[in-house]
């Protein structure tokens, strides 16, 4: 028996909107720790990792570890039927091949349930060890989204370089080149508007911009985004989910042949 009641149901709606274009089918894993997902895109270039900790749910019952295969587009369709202020409850019986999403309006005057068929999803789970990163950049998530969108109108790849000067995003294409430099800036009114560059070593890596643009669909989840870079590792783009966990995107770099 599984029963997860999420008062801030909009979080789950936002999570699905953020990942449904990158990943088609995925297994949601439910354990005492929380509700999680790990999935790669079809080309195995990017990986999504979601964690919603059990403590973040108003009610969390998970009698045994369970993995539920879902088509994310279909799940998003169902969650779109929930209001932004609705409480969302996920329910599944042991051995059932369906999951039920129950939506309650804040005033309890409208209660809906949507039952979705589960599916077998063949997925490879990767072990991601803790790593020391050469550089970690924290910046407003809207600013990062803006940069990715702007650069993708010029080129297909972005070079992200972190030096003591700050972080530089560069691209080039048929029509020309573009460079955006963000310097550390902590003298802001609100902490979420700050740009913080922590650098242990300078690092410069090249990535496909279209993946970054897909990751920025996580922007509504958090005011800030954290970008962790190391020369021998995929970049990690992380959106914290307040009080509950995180949505992380990992992207393998491009290298010169």
């Amino acid at each position: 028996m599984l029963e997860l009641r999420l008062v801030q149901g909009s979080l789950l709606k936002k999570v699905l909107e953020a990942i449904k274009d990158l990943v088609t089918d995925a297994n949601f894993d439910c354990s005492a720790t929380g509700f999680s997902l790990q999935a790669m895109d079809s080309s195995h270039v990017a990986l999504v990792s979601l964690l919603l900790r059990s403590e973040g749910f108003e009610h969390y019952r998970c009698d045994r570890n369970i993995s539920m295969g879902m088509n994310l587009n279909n799940m998003a369709k169902m969650l779109k039927c929930a209001g932004n202020d609705d409480i969302i409850t996920l329910k599944a019986d042991d051995g059932s091949d369906t999951v039920t999403f129950m939506f309650e309006s804040p005033t309890q005057d409208k209660i809906s349930d949507f039952e979705m068929k589960l599916m077998d999803v063949d997925s490879e789970h990767l072990g991601i060890p803790e790593a020391e990163y050469h550089a970690i950049v924290r910046m407003p998530s809207t600013e990062f989204a803006r940069i990715c969108k702007d650069l993708s109108s010029i080129g297909d790849t972005v070079v992200i370089s972190v030096t003591k000067e700050g972080v530089k995003f560069s691209t080039s294409g048929d029509i020309g080149t573009a460079n955006v430099v963000c310097r550390q800036n902590t003298t802001v009114d609100k902490p979420e508007d700050a740009t913080i560059v922590e650098m242990n070593e300078p690092v410069s890596l090249t990535f496909a911009l279209r993946y970054f643009n897909s990751f920025t669909k996580g922007t509504p989840l958090s005011n800030t985004v954290t970008i962790s870079l190391s020369s021998e590792l995929p970049v990690v783009v992380e959106y914290k989910i307040a009080e509950m966990g995180h949505l992380r995107f990992y992207l393998a770099p491009k290298i010169e042949e």
């Binding site: 270039v45 990017a46 490879e124 496909a208 590792l233 995929p234 992207l251 491009k254 010169e256 042949e257």
Partner: peptide
Amino acid sequence: QSLQLSITEFYRSS
């Protein structure tokens, strides 16, 4: 010409 690496080249199946 640049080569796109795969995520599975970095992380192993668990």
